[in-house]
Structure formats: structure tokens, C-alpha cells
Write a protein that binds this DNA or RNA. Structure first.
Length: 116
DNA sequence: ATTCTGACAGCAA
DNA sequence: TTTGCTGCCAGAA
């Protein structure tokens, strides 16, 4: 009955996209937070991998709102121009200093808490 | 099928 | 304190 092998529309990647799109404007989250929300707290690397394919999605994925747990813009190199990610965040009212989100703790948006 | 990689995170020295 | 290694998991070659 259960389509065990059937690949459901909600893949890990799709799940990551959905959560990422839920990140409010002017807020940021971490790969680990998303990974934990998905149920695999230590698969943070997969989140980044998924976001790597986010450009493949027809929807706009605010991947620039996803940084590592240090608030560091680790994925900025994947936005074409390395400064694009920081500029996007600054455009949303965030402050980027030394490729790092200032007041990261303040701007941090945890899907575990916000989406419960 | 096997091997390698990857936008991280946690822990050890 | 910083630096480095390991674990994690899924997709790509």
C-alpha cells in the first residue's frame, strides 16, 4: 500500500526550499536550524547542498537569508558575485560586517520555534 | 554498485 | 583562543 519507493513530492531538497522561503524578510537562519527542523540535525551540509540546487527552482529561494551558525556568509561565493549575498542582506536592513551578520542572534529566525 | 563531494556543526587538542 | 578532524546524509559521476 505504502508507496515506499515512491519518491514523494516532498523531497529533502523541496523541504529545504519550503522552509527557506518561509524565512521572513530581514531575518536569517542557519543551515543547522533548517536541518534540525527537517529532523536531521546533523545533516546541515545537505541543506547547503539543497540550496545549491535552489537556483534550479522556478521560485525565488532567499538562500541569502541562510548562513552558517556563526552568522558567516559562507555561501556568498555561490551567488555569482561574492558580495551579492551581503548586499541582499543589507538591502533587507541587516548589517554585514566582515562577511558576518551583525546582531545575528537578534536576526536569527529559528523554524523550530517560529513554525513549531 | 562504489566513490567522492558538499553553501555545516560539534568536539578534541 | 584557534585550528583541525570527524560525523552526517543524500545526490552526482
Amino acid at each position: 500500500m505504502s508507496r515506499s519507493k515512491q519518491k514523494e513530492p516532498n523531497d529533502f531538497f523541496t523541504n529545504v526550499y519550503e522552509v527557506t522561503k518561509l524565512i521572513p524578510y530581514g531575518r536569517v537562519t542557519s543551515y543547522g536550524a533548517i536541518a534540525r527542523y527537517l529532523g536531521s540535525g546533523r545533516s546541515a551540509r545537505m541543506v547547503g547542498w539543497a540550496l545549491n540546487s535552489s537556483h534550479s527552482s522556478r521560485e525565488f529561494i532567499p538562500a541569502h537569508r541562510v548562513v552558517n551558525r556563526n552568522g558567516l556568509l559562507t555561501g556568498r561565493h555561490h551567488f555569482g558575485n561574492s558580495t551579492l549575498m551581503g548586499q541582499l542582506l543589507e538591502n533587507e536592513g541587516l548589517i554585514i560586517e566582515d562577511d558576518q551578520v551583525v546582531n545575528f542572534n537578534e536576526k536569527f529566525w529559528d523554524p523550530l520555534s517560529e513554525l513549531s
